[in-house]
């Protein structure tokens, strides 16, 4: 049995672009998008996925449960 892999899943429709997650990220892997979501708000994207260690601090800070850490399929 191999080691399980996890990934960061960002729901762009839930995100309101407050950037609390990007501020909390110790490796600055998150940034704001160029386009907008269905509600007309800019949303956060994982701009440097190679930096992300899935520490979960962005999940702790998210007011809208837009970021989740899930097992990779």
């Amino acid at each position: 049995m191999g080691k399980k892999k996890y990934k960061l899943k960002i729901d762009r429709e839930r995100c309101k672009g407050c950037l609390f997650c990007a501020e909390a990220c110790p490796l600055k892997a998150l940034s704001i998008s160029d386009d907008v979501n269905g509600r007309g708000l800019k949303y956060v994207v994982l701009s440097s996925p190679e930096k992300c260690t899935k520490c979960g601090l962005c999940v702790v800070m998210c007011p809208d449960c837009a970021i989740e850490i899930v097992e990779e399929e």
Binding site: K16, C18, F20, L41, C62, P63
Partner: peptide, 8 residues
Amino acid sequence: CPGCGHGM
């Protein structure tokens, strides 16, 4: 609103 503490 974006950045509101209530959601947290």
